[in-house]
């Protein structure tokens, strides 16, 4: 089980959180083609290595925040 450092509550068990996938996905603005929209809805990075992702402290303070986690070792090196 991951130990995730919530910026508000400190380190808590993974079971208190919900996963939100890749961080930094911006809503498309202006003229948006179907391809660009599909990218926004369906395409996410899937790296083998460091990954910036969203977590939600659903059973705690209910804060959304970013975590940098390694997808092989599961090491967490940064939360904001």
């Amino acid at each position: 089980m991951l130990l995730i450092d919530c910026p508000h509550c400190g380190p808590r068990d993974e079971t208190e959180f919900r996963y939100g996938g890749q961080a930094g996905i911006a809503y498309p603005t202006g003229e948006t083609s179907d391809a660009r929209w599909a990218e926004y809805v369906f395409l996410r990075d899937n790296p083998k290595g460091w990954f910036r992702e969203r977590w939600f402290h659903v059973h705690g303070c209910r804060t959304w925040f970013d975590v940098e986690r390694h997808t092989v070792t599961h090491e967490i090196r940064n939360t904001t």
Partner: peptide
């Protein structure tokens, strides 16, 4: 398991 991983292992929970 909810998160992305290539680790071939998951949480005991």
């Amino acid at each position: 398991d909810a998160y992305n991983s290539y680790g071939q292992r998951g949480g005991a929970h």
